[in-house]
Design a protein around this nucleic acid. Structure first.
Lengths: 186, 186
DNA sequence: GTCTATACGTAGATAGAC
DNA sequence: GTCTATCTACGTATAGAC
């Protein structure tokens, strides 16, 4: 059943946003899907396989978004807003960004996963850099000498906002968005 | 031995910055200290007790810093710089902020710890708010209507910078500092 | 593809000797 | 205060029946 496989990955993705890679257990997954642990092991022999599959999905998602903004005519601000709305705003109040979840577990990750976390982190950096560089956009590119610094700042803000949102139950996301806009507009 | 107790807390604090609350094990601690698990359980019967002790130390540290900046005459920028240098810059390349480490584990934390994480998070917010409000400082207070938004942004940036530093091995901290300064100076 | 059964490691925690 | 020994629960993972 191909459907079961994607079902597993989707659930794992949700759990990674909620609890992180290490805290995901085959027991969790199997109970929530109404199958046995062995059944999950059939689809993903080792936990690392599941981890890689799940991160592949995150990457695909980012790649699609990158294509979208490369082929559409929007201002830098519009693209950035679209990124917020697509990638961060939809997350529920007990979820954080899957990439920052993986980054947090960094010290406990097996090597293959760790490498993939680096790849994913860098890919997201690339997406935001592309947005701020605004190659096809209608507005002149950001004038700041240090786009790199702005990129890391933007992503750190978004990821941090989700952490605070979950821990304190406050809508920190919209707060930091105002500050991100100030930085980008300069 | 009172010393052993603080020794345990200090090691646990280091481990929490490296791996997080859930990943800390009595086995880890005991082996690194050259004692048995039972011995650690004598000082901290349950893991939650150790967690609370360790977070108490983080809070003490913040309280001391708050006192310091309240009683000294510095500009907002100087205070903020001092905060970077004292609290974030000294962390080694495989350590993240202990508070964000705890926030990341939020879904897996026992209730007592969770509540304390909220307290700690809010206390750090208060420290940065105090800095930016600049009650006794030499410069006029930040004019931005939304100090709260700046505070969350500053902290998110710092925490995110440490995550990226560890995962990618880049000095992201100094990159985001430049952007924080831009925000604060406005 | 999914199951039962099981192996093996390690986690947090406790009892009782020294 | 620290030890040995042990308990129970849960983690990943595998073998083999259906």
């Amino acid at each position: 059943m191909k459907n079961r496989k994607t079902q597993i990955v989707d659930l794992a993705l949700q759990l990674i946003r909620e609890k992180g890679y290490v805290a995901i257990s085959y027991d969790d997954l199997s109970k929530q899907l109404g199958v046995t642990k062995a059944s999950i092991h059939y689809h993903f022999e080792k936990k690392e396989d599941l981890g890689l599959a799940l991160m592949g999905k995150v990457q695909e998602n980012l790649e699609q978004f990158l294509k979208l903004i490369k082929s559409s005519v929007m201002t830098v601000e519009e693209k950035l807003m679209l990124y917020f709305e697509r990638q961060y705003a939809p997350l529920s109040s007990d979820e954080i960004c899957p990439i920052s979840s993986l980054q947090s577990d960094f010290a406990s990750l097996p090597d293959v996963i760790r490498v993939k976390v680096q790849e994913l982190s860098e890919f997201e950096i690339k997406v935001i850099t592309t947005i701020l560089t605004d190659e096809q956009g209608t507005k002149p590119a950001n004038q700041s000498k240090d786009i790199e610094a702005v990129v890391y700042t933007v992503l750190s803000c978004l990821k941090g906002a989700l952490q605070y949102k979950r821990a304190l139950g406050k809508d920190v996301l919209s707060l930091v968005q105002t500050q991100i806009n100030r930085l980008v507009k300069s």
